[in-house]
Design a protein around this nucleic acid. Sequence first.
DNA 1: TAAAGTAGTTTATAATATAAACTTATTTAT
DNA 2: ATAAATAAGTTTATATTATAAACTACTTTA
Lengths: 95, 95
Amino acid sequence: MNGFKPLDPLLHSQLRLAVVSLLLGVESAEFTFIKEKTQSTAGNLSVQLDKLSEAGYIKIEKSFKGKKPVTTCKITKAGITAFEAYVNALKGYIE
Amino acid sequence: MNGFKPLDPLLHSQLRLAVVSLLLGVESAEFTFIKEKTQSTAGNLSVQLDKLSEAGYIKIEKSFKGKKPVTTCKITKAGITAFEAYVNALKGYIE
DNA sequence: TAAAGTAGTTTATAATATAAACTTATTTAT
DNA sequence: ATAAATAAGTTTATATTATAAACTACTTTA
């Protein structure tokens, strides 16, 4: 049986988990869209996206939509793998 | 559908979640047993047990086994309810 | 009786999460 | 034209958490 496997601290965060969960279901998502869906503040989201990006779990691209800056996020292969491992470990706690 | 429901911060902690998970499966458990099963340090465990206790999620009883002090923990009704709600909310993130 | 071990607690520090303040630029109202 | 409000974030500061280190009190063993 399982024991309690360590939970990836990068994913064991309400907001970051929500972001990754969200990105798993879409091709890509813009900052403002993620902000709305996760009900987070821009500041907090900005910080957490950076962390996910630095971990290589998501890819962030900056561009312009007309004259406004847009930040677009996409989950990476590593992000998917990490998420799966996290969920797997978590099951040892909640099942 | 679901959206991202807030995750009870008291349970969204690796060690506290492990403790509650563990206690759900047994009648009661001693400090040292929990410490071994969760691979935690005594200090950290002591702090986290206090928090769970103050939240009313577990009940702590102190007694003596021969001459040695023993701390015995038991999950409460409130603890079970909170755990179920937590798992339920979590499913909105991982399914 | 001195050293090592038990069973923890308390205090200090490091890491996280979050919010508040700020930046840069754009659109709208006066 | 210019001032005010809005958009899209970032940076910095603060509060909360988690964790480790140090300590207490007592017991067992050498």
